[in-house]
Design a binder for these strands. Structure first.
Lengths: 347, 347
DNA sequence: GGCGGGAATGTAAGCGGTTGCAGGGATAGG
DNA sequence: CCTATCCCTGCAACCGCTTACATTCCCGCC
């Protein structure tokens, strides 16, 4: 491996000069610079990042930690671009121009994982943490050593930088659309697990929005687990509802707390001969699924994933520059994406 | 930032001992070890990876370089798990147990990109390079400095380690299925660009397999560009074919060189009232799309992406251990994934 | 001619770990 | 009681690059 010493010797200068040339310092005579550069090229010299990092106290690497889907989920998710992947791409794009690189680790809670993140923290200048992957205490401990920015965590009083999306705005817009544009009155929600923060936030927003609508009512809330199969189960529940004189069996619209469950509901209802959106309007949440493959295209709420990652990366870089920045929670709005499953015409 | 010196001082030992404890060396008295460990914990000491890297001549990081989809493609690809993402997950899974981390960079050919990869090479112990992202010469130059393993590149005489998939086996199995099981005789191929190695390989395999079939013929080859819209264009070409006494307008089966184009063809034909697979059998290639969202589920050829990445990662680790390993090209078979669009019953 | 000043370059001290080698203490054997 | 061994620890020299500070050299000007 060629080093600055090799280059210095061959070029007949000191290592200081080599370093200055390589790092692009201005205080080098053009002739010298050219000579050194030629030698660098000839010898194929690439500075060792460890040595640079040690000397400059900066590694030019930032870490990204996210949940790995379990092996079981893998098949379910097969073919879908995950939240984490989108974040990776967006964050990498920000870093691209800066000389920083992205180091990543996936995993889930657990002793082993904490250890890995800890080791990881020695390799990076800052950490991007997606979702609620670690206990808040561990996060705080981490944040004391290196800058940490959370993506999509609960923007609570952790005292950490957080960039998150607001479940409310999109859900409200969605319900307004369903009620206002399409005149739906009797709405059902297929919610997530009761202990999932996102699920409860979406449910609260849903209920508030329906309550605010002219004459609209929450007819039923069914709890799923965010999986497609739990969506199918929800469909069965809907289909089994007794029809009475005062109400038809199916509601006007079914709002789901994520896209996967919406797909499940869609499949379940379609299989029973229910037309979507003809008989029932249906919506999802997240906009992670490739909606153009679904028939009908799914009306949903879009999380600004790339924007989230983009801002988080920038925030982290800023914090690395200036460790004393006050931590801040930044909340981005979600938006309703109107496609066809709500009853709107295509295209 | 606490260092080994801090720990040593507090624990009343030398830095050597601290280092030995942290690295898990056996030559430390249990009592000493416990004392040091306690201090490490109390002080929240995490060894600096740069210093370790410099000293041990190993960074415990491997790099991954892949093509970034252009901004334009982004929308088309929206919601699909990309080749690169799958590789990232698989490679990371291999590394997870080893103490190595994955550092990644996306990009495309171009001066700027070469530079970035070069700088990257100073940060890692080895490089995983996906697809033909760099000129072979640049790759060779890289490989002279650090271990490099290519994923899915052409397994030609580059003298580099390559792990690639074989287009032939899957395509052959697919055509055999179409011809043998479903009795299709008149087949069309929607191929890729003429200068794309994968496209030509798939086309050659297709033609050979059809030729080998009992009475089967290649009725037409249409060239697309791997995009969904080019698939739609291909559908138009198929629909415009003159029908004559000797042949119906549509072929028995349309084989596509990737899934995207297959989706395009599907949409185009369905829109014209053609039933898939009732009127025409249709197949894709890659199995990257979330086929369970498509109606009908797409019969296609599966690239063993995760297996590719898994082996590449292992190979790279092996090469890092022993730089003198002879380079080897490893070719994995592709397999036909029979779903519904070929005419088979679902589930 | 002498001197202040600025530009270009060199010297060398770190940066924070790791590890070969040496030292010291305790135990066992002579 | 002396010495050979075996453990356990410490000393100190790197690893390769950066950078504060020192040095040298060249101008220009009084």
């Amino acid at each position: 491996m060629t080093t600055v010493y090799d280059v210095a010797r061959v070029a007949g200068v000191s290592t200081a000069t080599v370093s200055r040339v390589v790092r692009g310092s201005s205080l080098v005579h053009p002739d010298t610079r050219d000579r050194v550069l030629a030698v660098v090229e000839a010898l194929g010299f690439v500075p060792d990042a460890s040595a640079q990092g040690l000397s400059r106290r900066r590694k030019d690497i930032i870490g990204f930690v996210a949940l790995e889907r379990a092996a079981g989920e893998m098949d379910i998710e097969r073919g879908t671009l995950l939240f984490a992947d989108q974040i990776v791409h967006a964050a990498e794009a920000v870093l691209r121009g800066t000389g920083y690189s992205l180091l990543l680790t996936f995993g889930g809670r657990g002793e082993q994982f904490e250890r890995r993140v800890r080791a990881l923290s020695g390799k990076v200048d800052g950490l991007l943490v997606a979702e609620e992957i670690m206990a808040v205490d561990d996060l705080r401990a981490l944040a004391e050593r290196i800058p940490v920015v959370m993506i999509a965590g609960r923007p609570d009083e952790t005292g950490l930088d957080v960039i998150a999306a607001d479940n409310r705005s999109g859900m409200t817009a969605l319900v307004d659309h369903l009620v206002g544009e399409h005149g739906n009155r009797r709405l059902c929600l297929v919610s997530g697990p009761k202990d999932a923060p996102d699920a409860t936030a979406r449910q609260a927003a849903f209920e508030a929005a329906v309550l605010a609508g002219p004459g609209s009512v929450v007819e039923q809330v069914i709890h799923g687990d965010f999986s497609e199969s739990s969506g199918q189960a929800a469909a069965r529940v809907l289909l089994d509802r007794p029809r009475s004189a005062s109400r038809r069996a199916l509601p006007d619209a079914v709002v789901c707390a994520n896209d996967q469950m919406a797909i499940g509901v869609l499949r379940g209802l379609q299989r029973a001969g229910v037309a979507i959106p003809g008989d029932v309007a249906l919506t999802g949440f997240d906009d992670l699924y490739p909606s153009h493959l679904i028939d009908p295209p799914l009306t949903t709420v879009s999380q600004p994933v790339r924007e989230l990652a983009d801002r988080a990366a920038r925030r982290l870089l800023a914090r690395i520059e200036d460790r004393s920045l006050p931590p801040r929670a930044e909340i981005l709005p979600t938006t309703a994406v109107i496609r066809v499953s709500c009853g709107c015409p295509g295209q």
